[in-house]
Structures are given as structure tokens and as C-alpha cells.
């Protein structure tokens, strides 16, 4: 239950901070949550999942108001990676940022403990 709460809170924080500030807030938010939950080995995994869901949610929200499908197709082709790869990259990248940031902080916390 606590893990679910953590996941939801981290997701909301990452999505909000990305929207208001920029992409680099994802590892900062993940680091904060990683420190708070440094005693849980699953924290990096959950942080990564939160990053994935946060950016996925932003894509969905934007998709309701604009032609996300067109972006996916046009930009995916322009970048020569394909539409689905563009989406995959967009979801994987915050997951990597968040999981690794939470992992670093958790490791530091573990050493101190």
C-alpha cells in the first residue's frame, strides 16, 4: 500500500515538475523520493516506473488537446526512428533518469546507515 502511495506521489510530482519547469526535474524529484524511501530496495524500480507513468500521462493529456498521433508519425519519421520508437524512447528516458537517480541516492543513504 505504501509503495502504491509512493508511486502515485512520485508520478504526480514528476509530471507536475516536468510541466512547470523542465525535463531535468525528473531526476531531482526521484532523488528526493529515493532519499525518503532509502530503506526500500524497490525504490529505484518504483521511481523508474513513476517516471515512465509521469511522462506517459503527459503524452496522454497532450493527446487529448492536440494531434499527438501526428507528432508521433511525423517526428518519428523525421528522426528516422519510427513512430513507436519515439514513444518508447520518450517513456524509457524518464524511467532511466528516475531509477538511476533514486538508486544513487538510496546507495548513499544505505552507506550512511
Amino acid at each position: 500500500m505504501r509503495r502504491l502511495q509512493f508511486l502515485l506521489a512520485a508520478t504526480a510530482a514528476m509530471a507536475t515538475c516536468t510541466w512547470v519547469v523542465a525535463w531535468w526535474m525528473v531526476p531531482i524529484v526521484a532523488a528526493v523520493f529515493g532519499w525518503v524511501r532509502r530503506d526500500d530496495a524497490a525504490t529505484p524500480l518504483l521511481a523508474g516506473l513513476a517516471g515512465f507513468v509521469a511522462w506517459g500521462s503527459l503524452l496522454l493529456i497532450a493527446g487529448l488537446s492536440g494531434p499527438e498521433g501526428s507528432v508521433m508519425n511525423a517526428v518519428g519519421r523525421a528522426m528516422q526512428v519510427g513512430p513507436l520508437a519515439l514513444v518508447g524512447l520518450t517513456l524509457a528516458y524518464p524511467a532511466l533518469l528516475a531509477a538511476s537517480a533514486a538508486g544513487v541516492v538510496r546507495a548513499i543513504g544505505a552507506r550512511r546507515a
Binding site: T18, W24, P27, G63, Y93, L96
Partner: peptide, 29 residues
């Protein structure tokens, strides 16, 4: 992850600002 987020690699621009769903290419929508 941070390095590819802020540094262009060949023809690939910094991925952080590019993929940012609020300010990157997705904002074109």
C-alpha cells in the same frame, strides 16, 4: 542519461529537451 540529455551526439540533439513532453517535440501538438 544526463549526458545524453544535455549533449548533442552527432546529428542527435540533446535528448532531454527533445523528448520533454511539455517543452520538446511533443509540444508541437
Amino acid at each position: 542519461a544526463l549526458w545524453i540529455g544535455v549533449t548533442p551526439t552527432g546529428a542527435v540533439p540533446p535528448l532531454g529537451q527533445l523528448l520533454d513532453p511539455a517543452h520538446g517535440v511533443w509540444a508541437a501538438a
